[in-house]
Write a protein that binds this DNA or RNA. Structure first.
Lengths: 240, 240
DNA sequence: TCGATGCTTCGGTTACGATCGAACTATGAA
DNA sequence: TTCATAGTTCGATCGTAACCGAAGCATCGA
């Protein structure tokens, strides 16, 4: 009788405020780093780390190493559904709380991911480059084509220079707000620097979001058009 | 950030092993007394009391006073559904545990409820008495009819004697295993004593179940026949 | 190689809450 | 009224788990 039965274990995992905050931050299927989750939970990185390992052994989270980051995500949509049902239940009991805030839509639109562009615009850029035949995707890997090399050189990217560094030129990076890949690697970094240099965009002071000027935004969208079909629809469905 | 958000509160309520045991004991919609729930949780009555009040203020339980007992039940089927979904989820994560045991089918069949017959047989008895016109049910109240008085006198119940006591003759009592009413009051007590006296049944040593002899069972079932239609079907659906 | 960054592990403190004994209240029966 | 039983409240103890500082790995870029 003393041993906690199944449901108690799950309840206890969800029952800690810090863990609950981290889990709700992960609702919607985006992956977050340990550091981001620590902030979401209002705790230090060390504490978050122990919480995350508990959640992982409890089967609520999965971990995905990516470079020197560790991305955590809900194990599957079963977890999401469970959390959602609990939240729905809580709402009926008057356990209502301060709405979780607008979630910084700017962050979802465009933000810096280590050193390259991420968010809606980051995903769009990679999609567009692939669609244009500038980058070919084989499995997880990305390769710059000759056509792409010419194209990028024309907008001021020193591709041959990038090739000389040890850092991989192209790399796929999981985007947590879109749950799709965006472009990392030295090319991704170079592209973002390029936008900064041209004055199309700048970093926000106190957040990781990237702020485009209206002119820069216009140019960016023109430079990286998007297939009429898939993307927009797909993208809108995520948040709203 | 520090304050526990909605989902954490619910999780914490369910996350305690003792509370989880009590809640699972209440699954299926039966009402239980605080003492019974304390046993289910493997804790003392005091501890159970504090747990129960927490669960009640948390909106998971409702309380129903009945005589000197306090029956607790899940607040509504939303709670049941929530628990069920958590249990289902736990099952998929390998949080499986020792099956909660056969739940003592003997207890569900026939048990003593304070001083009268409860369980499947208790409900059957009252149903049968009402169907035979021995007891009339008006709202929550039960009344012995003249016909019933004659009928019961014939099997050795001193109805006039029972009438002289201050204790109500007939009373409806919520049956947690059947979630329907059974007969309490001095008449309920007298009937059970009558079965004991006749040697139809006896109390179990270490549980609240009532053990019928095969002969006693035959007589009991004959004495309290059951409408062919509703009951059997209804009854079987509960456990299996 | 080195330094910087992201994250984990270790150790010790602290605080919360589960637990129970004991005293108190409420209901029922005689 | 008195006794017995069901349940709550109070007070104190005790364990566990959350928490953070500091040290240790791991990965990346140069």
């Amino acid at each position: 009788m003393k041993e906690g039965p199944d449901v108690a274990q799950i309840g206890a995992l969800i029952g800690d405020p810090a863990r609950a905050n981290m889990l709700t931050a992960l609702m919607g299927g985006r992956a977050l780093t340990a550091t981001e989750l620590a902030a979401a939970g209002g705790i230090t990185l060390q504490t978050a780390s122990t919480h995350l390992s508990k959640l992982e052994t409890g089967g609520l989270l999965v971990q995905r190493k990516q470079g020197r980051h560790r991305y955590f995500a809900l194990a599957d949509d079963g977890v999401g559904k469970l959390l959602e049902s609990i939240m729905g239940f809580a709402a009926t009991r008057g356990h209502l709380r301060h709405r979780p805030g607008p979630k910084e839509p700017a962050l979802r639109k465009a933000r810096i991911c280590y050193d390259h562009l991420a968010g809606d615009y980051g995903v769009r850029m990679l999609d567009s480059l692939i669609a244009a035949g500038a980058i070919s995707a084989v499995g997880d890997g990305l390769n710059l084509t000759e056509r792409g090399e010419a194209q990028l050189s024309s907008i001021g990217i020193d591709v041959t220079g990038l090739r000389s560094t040890r850092r991989p030129l192209c790399r796929s990076c999981l985007d947590w707000s879109e749950r799709r890949a965006h472009l990392a690697g030295s090319l991704g970094k170079a592209l973002l620097s390029n936008f900064f240099d041209k004055g199309w965009a700048r970093r926000s002071e106190n957040s990781r979001s990237i702020l485009f000027t209206s002119e820069g935004e216009r140019r960016f969208l023109a430079l990286f058009p998007v297939d009429a079909l898939a993307t927009d629809k797909e993208r809108d469905g995520v948040d709203a």
